[in-house]
Simulated assay, not measured.
Amino acid sequence: MIPFKKWFGSNTEGEEAARSLAADNIPNHVAVIMDGNGRWAQKRGLPRVAGHHSGMKNVKKITMAANSIGVNVLTLYAFSTENWKRPKEEVDYLMKLPLEFFPKEIDELVANNVRIRMTGWQEGLPEYTLKAVQDAIDRTAGNTGLILNFALNYGSRKEMLRGIQQIAQDALDGKLKPEEIDEARFSKYLLTDPLPEPDLLIRTSGELRISNFMLWQLAYSELWFTELAWPEFTEERFYEAVQEYQRRARRYGGL
């Protein structure tokens, strides 16, 4: 049974759920597709951006939940390369969320030894968004605990194509021989390097797809879906996903 680390705002039900987990089988890396913010808001007669605001507040709760049970990396799919197709008002709001989230939560993240990381392309992101993220990265650079990795302006197909282009260029430059290209070498050309591949993927809101998210890295990840939208996804449901992960046998193609 896992020794549960308390954090501000934890509750008895969450603590009990956390303590029921097997301490020797906690997923090293959990990735989350935080889906359903806009639809959650619209069902309540609210503008879509209200859902994104509520979703932002849920980030800290799930981060602390992951940290409390010993998850080492938590990757949150915050904004995809396809999300630029959304209405400008919504995109502009999403780009400003880091300016609200990090100043408000950074002290507690630092106190809990959380380290901020970003996976994605800086090109196209507003300067104020980049500054807020970079300031958080710099502020937590000395931390050694949970890596909170935001997939921001990220798309997996673009990532893999870029990796292939870089491999081709290295081969042309004589830095790499074709026979030296294997899975481990290719992984080093991806934006997620040197993070481990996710053990568990969680997607909220009932959608059963992975939406151009870590297509290479999720090859052997366990997938867990819930009908709950991201703003209503609680610590207890997070532990439920980990419990389900612990019940599964990961055979990687073997018996």
Rank of each mutant, 00 (worst) to 15 (best):
M1L: 14
I2T: 13
P3V: 10
N11Y: 05
N11G: 11
T12Y: 02
G14M: 05
G14C: 11
E15L: 07
R19Y: 00
D24C: 12
N25E: 12
N28W: 03
N28G: 06
V30P: 06
V30H: 08
A31K: 13
V32Y: 14
M34A: 02
N37R: 05
N37L: 01
R39Y: 02
V49E: 00
A50F: 01
N58Y: 02
V59I: 12
K61I: 13
K61V: 04
K61E: 08
K61T: 07
T63L: 09
N67A: 14
G70Q: 06
V73G: 12
T75H: 10
T75P: 09
A78C: 08
F79Y: 09
T81Q: 09
E82F: 05
P87G: 04
E89W: 09
D92V: 01
D92S: 12
Y93K: 05
L97T: 00
P98N: 05
P98A: 01
F101S: 04
F101P: 02
F101K: 03
F102L: 03
K104Q: 00
D107R: 13
A111E: 11
V114R: 11
V114N: 01
R115M: 15
M118G: 00
G120I: 09
G120F: 13
L125P: 00
L125Y: 01
K131H: 06
A132I: 00
Q134W: 05
T140N: 00
A141W: 05
G142H: 10
L146V: 06
N149V: 07
F150V: 03
F150H: 03
Y154H: 10
Y154W: 15
G155H: 03
R157P: 01
K158I: 09
E159T: 14
I164L: 13
I164F: 14
I167L: 15
Q169N: 07
D170W: 01
A171L: 14
G174I: 11
G174N: 03
K177W: 00
P178K: 09
E180Y: 07
D182F: 07
E183G: 06
F186E: 12
S187A: 15
S187F: 15
Y189D: 10
L195V: 10
L195E: 15
E197S: 15
P198R: 09
L200A: 07
G206T: 09
L208N: 08
R209C: 04
M214C: 13
Q217K: 14
A219R: 09
A219P: 01
E222C: 12
E227W: 07
E232N: 15
T234D: 03
E236M: 03
E240A: 13
A241Q: 08
A241C: 12
A241I: 11
Q243E: 02
E244W: 04
E244H: 13
Q246T: 10
R247S: 10
R250G: 02
Y252V: 11
G253L: 14
L255S: 13
L255H: 04
